[in-house]
Simulated assay, not measured.
Amino acid sequence: MTVLLIAGSPTAPSRSAALLDAAALRLRRRGLEVQRLTVRELPAQALVHAQFDDAQLQRATDQVAAARAVVVATPVYKAAYSGLLKTFLDLLPQSALKGKTVLPLATGGSAHHMLALDYALRPVLGALGARHILPGVYASDAQVTLTPEGGWQLQVDIADRLAEAVDTLQAEAFPSTARSGFDPIHFSRVRCSV
């Protein structure tokens, strides 16, 4: 039972990868197994020419098949998700996301592109058979900033929304591991009154 994180940015480092890193940290802290698939590391020729027999593409497809939940992160260009991510998603089998819970994440230059999650990415994820596509988290460039040390910092509102989205992902895909909001109480401490 793993969560597969798919990084769809053609550049590194990237703001969308920073969102993915923050999600991974939260998932790992909750005891979930996390794997990462960075699309830009797949062979470009195999992606563009749809070489389904390429060993790296087959491994990537197997990772998607084995995951219980998927988090997809992409930058938004021209009001849509990255072409690199599209190339990869186009190579997946029609039912690649069947039965899976999917959390889409995106970053873009301004808030004007936030609907790209709903109008561009969500239909493709649905066409791939995702069981449940969670409400996505979109962050503008101003909400994910580069620190002087070279790391990324999420503004509080984005960090909170991302934390809530990851909690929802865990509750949907791994209900037995989700926290109830109450700390466990030993039976000896339970009191009954009549």
Rank of each mutant, 00 (worst) to 15 (best):
V3G: 00
I6Q: 00
I6N: 05
G8D: 15
S9A: 15
P10M: 06
T11A: 14
T11N: 14
T11R: 15
A12K: 12
A12Y: 15
A12Q: 11
S14M: 01
L20P: 06
L20Y: 05
L20V: 08
L20T: 00
A22T: 08
A22N: 14
A24W: 10
L25C: 13
R26W: 09
R26M: 08
R28H: 04
L32D: 01
L32P: 07
E33K: 12
Q35P: 00
R36L: 00
T38S: 14
R40Q: 08
E41D: 15
P43H: 04
A44M: 07
A44P: 12
Q45C: 02
L47D: 06
F52W: 08
F52P: 04
D54I: 12
A55M: 02
Q56I: 02
L57R: 12
L57C: 10
Q58C: 06
Q58G: 14
R59F: 13
T61E: 13
D62N: 02
Q63M: 14
A66K: 10
A67W: 04
V70P: 03
V71Q: 05
V71M: 08
V71L: 10
V72D: 05
Y77Q: 06
K78C: 03
K78P: 06
A79T: 10
A80Y: 03
S82K: 10
L85R: 13
T87S: 09
D90H: 01
D90N: 13
D90E: 15
L92D: 09
P93V: 00
S95T: 11
G99C: 07
L103C: 01
P104F: 10
P104H: 10
L105V: 05
L105W: 03
A106K: 00
G108Q: 05
A111E: 09
L115N: 00
L121E: 01
P123R: 12
P123E: 03
P123I: 10
V124R: 05
V124F: 09
V124C: 13
H132R: 03
L134T: 02
P135T: 13
G136Q: 04
S140C: 08
Q143E: 15
V144M: 13
V144C: 01
T145H: 04
T145N: 06
L146C: 08
L146G: 09
E149C: 07
W152R: 08
Q153D: 04
D157I: 11
I158G: 04
A159K: 05
D160F: 11
R161Q: 15
L162E: 11
L162G: 14
E164R: 15
A165R: 08
T168G: 06
L169H: 04
Q170K: 09
S176W: 13
R179K: 06
R179A: 13
F187L: 12
S188A: 10
S188Q: 08
R189I: 01
R189Y: 03
